[in-house]
């Protein structure tokens, strides 16, 4: 860099920046399908996973579908507005897990049921004081940000 004139240094930097942008765009384009952290129920319905394949399923817990069975077993439906996948899970749930909340589960399909080994809760970007939400619910004007 030292031996180059200022104009040439700027040219070199511009070419470098351009090359980086192109490289990043190409990697991003090549991995556009592979970089998804989870699959949505619609994607699972369109492209069923291979038998025994472990994958992540993500979506909203359908309202009214959450059922607690014996001991720690729970069942619920995951939806993304399009398709619905029933899920079975035995284990400890994170704090934020609940109906109408986002979740991501790792597991396998057993027949039509997704058997999860691990469940993560997905959080959205809204923050509100508890008192405010309680007051809004009392007045009946509260709208769930997820619905």
């Amino acid at each position: 860099m030292k031996s180059l004139k200022k104009k040439r240094r700027i040219q070199v930097l511009l070419v470098t920046a351009l090359a980086l942008v192109i490289a990043t765009a190409m990697i991003g384009y090549a991995m556009r399908d592979g970089i998804n952290f989870f699959r949505s129920p619609t994607q699972v319905a369109e492209e069923p996973p291979k038998p025994g394949e472990t994958f992540r399923l993500g979506g909203l817990v359908e309202e009214g579908s959450l059922k607690r069975g014996e001991s720690e077993v729970i069942t619920f439906n995951v939806t993304d507005g399009g398709a619905v996948v029933p899920v079975r899970f035995a284990g400890v749930l994170p704090d934020l897990f609940g109906e109408n909340q986002g979740m991501i589960g790792t597991g396998k399909m057993e027949g039509d049921v997704f058997v999860a080994e691990e469940i993560l809760a997905k959080h959205d970007e809204s923050y509100m004081p508890k008192e405010v939400v309680d007051a809004l619910k009392e007045q009946g004007v509260y709208q769930d940000p997820n619905s």
Partner: peptide, 20 residues
Amino acid sequence: WNQGLHQGATLSMDKEENIS
């Protein structure tokens, strides 16, 4: 890649209010 675990931006100048 919107199918990730981390939520979107909480603070933005143009969008509706997310944080009270």
